[in-house]
Amino acid sequence: MRVIMSKKKYTKDHEWVSIDNDIATVGISNHAQESLGDIVFIELPSVGKSVNAKDEICVVESVKAASDIYAPIDGEIMEVNNSLEGDAAIINQDAENTGWIFKMKVSNPSQYDELMTEDDYKIFLEQ
């Protein structure tokens, strides 16, 4: 078992991931919600689904556009944030906390290490 890791990491597709033992919590970054604008709908992934890193697994719809959410690492979807179904705007208010989208059981923890740290992500956004 891995130790509890509270440090958040980021993908180039603007998802954030935090890992607690072998469960990863995933959402979209605050930067992503800002550029999407008002979010009005989210199609959540199915619980129990096995996914590979970079698979399109759900969709966030803002008034401007639909945006795919990708699996940041390999694993199985364990839980989804059902409160987003009634009020997807929670992501606009609190993208990197209560606006989490799904939790997954991680099958390949080394993939997590390869993701960007918060500082790396900031630099990535400035590029």
Binding site: G37, D38, V40, V63, K64, N92
Partner: peptide
């Protein structure tokens, strides 16, 4: 301008 700080809605 597509929107300002208050947002489209």
């Amino acid at each position: 301008p597509i929107n300002y700080k208050p947002g489209i809605i």
